[in-house]
Computed example of a mutant assay.
Amino acid sequence: MDIQSLFSVKDKVVLVTGGAKGVGRMISEAFVRNGARVYIASRDAAACHSACAELNALPDESSTGTAIPLPADLSSLAECERLAAALAAREPRLHVLVNNSGATWGEAYDSYPDAAWTKLMTLNVQRVFALTRLLTPLLESPPSQKSKNHHTATDDPGRVIHIGSIDALRVPLLPTFAYSASKAALHHLSRHLAVELGPRGVTSNTLACGPFPSKMMAATLRNFGEEIKGANPLGRIGLPEDVGGACLFLASRAGAFVNGATVALDGGVSLMSKI
């Protein structure tokens, strides 16, 4: 198979939660630049519309897709339900769901608030499950491809890509207790979903991301950027092409047989000992 077909996402329908800023914006742009129709969901409606306007103004190339804003506060179950209904009213099928929306909270152990756990476990795990479940009918392969035992034989399954963290693979230095625990839960949820959704023609995989330039990482990179780069075997932090390319791989024919994987997208820094 030629490389253009192997890695193509042209004309695929993609939903990126938290897709207006940071890593989500990088992912959204990668899909738009490669011909996908990308719905961007974000709590910040203004940022959602602004990101889509910028992406739709990219140089007119034959493979350029489109970006469509669908603002939603995904910390709310009712908003997840509204988002799923709005997408179903527009599209007969969703090819790729990128669960990127998330939050972090750093505070000293002795004063770490209970509210942090409620907020992060809800948004980073519980609502990911809810939205994925609500969108499963759109992600499933067409009924014509299903056999009598409900297994779907397809080389183009629906894809769910979860944006996790290397803080779920190792203990972080920063006091982000609820964040690291919620991302570890997300990683395992992805594996559980891989087993549940595989027979329905949907894969579930996780990108355990290291440091990328984003609002969430801004203060850390400002204060410790050089140390973070120096601690990485590759001597740098992540770039838009890194996370965008990983998502394109998982969403394309090239990644169709990857299911239940957790890919450390961190330049190898999670392998380094702190001793």
Results as ranks from 00 to 15, higher is better:
H187W: 07
L70P: 01
R191P: 04
I27H: 03
A185M: 13
I27W: 03
G244L: 04
I40F: 06
V243L: 09
T118L: 01
V160N: 00
A256D: 06
E140D: 08
R159Y: 02
P172Q: 10
M217E: 09
L87N: 00
A46D: 14
T64D: 08
L186E: 03
S270A: 04
V258E: 02
G245Q: 07
C52G: 11
G158Q: 03
R127T: 08
N149F: 12
A47Q: 14
R33Y: 13
F257G: 09
I237A: 07
L271G: 09
R33F: 11
F212Y: 15
A78I: 12
A51Y: 04
S8T: 09
L138V: 05
A256K: 06
G164Q: 02
L186M: 15
Y109D: 07
A116V: 00
L234Y: 12
V243H: 01
W117F: 11
T64Y: 07
S76Y: 02
F224C: 10
T136P: 05
S190R: 03
I228M: 14
G65L: 04
L120K: 00
E241Q: 14
A41T: 09
Q145A: 13
S147W: 07
M26T: 05
A67S: 10
G255D: 03
S141F: 10
S63A: 11
A57K: 15
T64H: 12
G164A: 07
A168Q: 04
A231H: 04
T64P: 04
T176L: 14
H151N: 09
A130G: 04
H151K: 12
M216S: 11
V98T: 12
T220W: 02
L239Q: 09
A218C: 06
E29K: 13
R236S: 11
D110S: 11
N259H: 07
R170A: 10
A67L: 03
A36V: 05
A41S: 13
D73K: 00
L120Q: 03
T122K: 09
G164P: 01
H188M: 15
I68G: 01
A251F: 01
V38S: 05
L139M: 12
D114C: 01
A20V: 06
A256E: 09
